[in-house]
C-alpha cells in the first residue's frame, strides 16, 4: 500500500510517498533529506512530536516559563504530558536549556526550560 504524507521536519514540507507492508514502512520516497525517511517511518509505526507548553512561575519576574521535551514523544502521550505540565510550578531561577523533569513520564526524554526565567 502507498500512503502519501507531508513531512513536518522543516518548512520545505516534502510530499512523501510511503510504501507500507504489514504496518511497516518498507520504502520512503519524495524526501529531500534523511530526516524525511525517519519521519515517514515514525509517522506510521509510532508517530512522535516535540511537545511545547508553558509552566506557571512563582515568585519570579516572568509569569509563564516556556518548556519543551528535548526529544519527540509519542503522539498518544501528549494529553498525559500536558496534564502533568499543568501541575508543575517553577520557583527558582532557570536558564534556557535547564532540565525541569528528568526522564519525563518515563518516556526517556527530559522536559527543559526554553527561556531564562529570573
Amino acid at each position: 500500500m502507498i500512503k502519501n504524507l507531508i513531512c513536518i521536519e522543516c518548512p520545505k514540507s516534502c510530499a512523501l510517498a510511503l510504501d507500507i507492508e504489514n504496518c511497516r514502512v518498507v520504502k520512503v520516497s519524495g524526501n529531500q533529506c534523511p530526516k524525511g525517511e525517519d519521519y515517514g517511518k515514525a509517522e506510521i509505526e509510532n508517530p512522535l512530536r516535540i511537545l511545547t507548553a508553558t509552566v506557571l512561575c512563582q515568585g519570579l519576574s516572568l509569569k509563564m516559563a516556556p518548556v519543551r521535551t528535548d526529544k519527540p514523544i509519542p503522539k498518544a502521550k501528549i494529553q498525559e504530558a500536558v496534564s502533568e505540565i499543568r501541575k508543575m510550578r517553577i520557583g527558582r531561577v532557570v536558564q534556557s536549556g535547564d532540565i525541569l523533569a528528568r526522564d519525563f513520564l518515563g518516556l526517556g526524554v527530559n522536559l527543559i526550560a526554553t527561556r531564562e526565567c529570573g
Binding site: S96, T114, R115
Partner: peptide, 10 residues
C-alpha cells in the same frame, strides 16, 4: 537545529 522562538532569541 530545531529551536523554539525563545531559544532562538536567547
Amino acid at each position: 537545529e530545531v529551536l523554539t522562538g525563545p531559544e532562538y532569541a536567547d
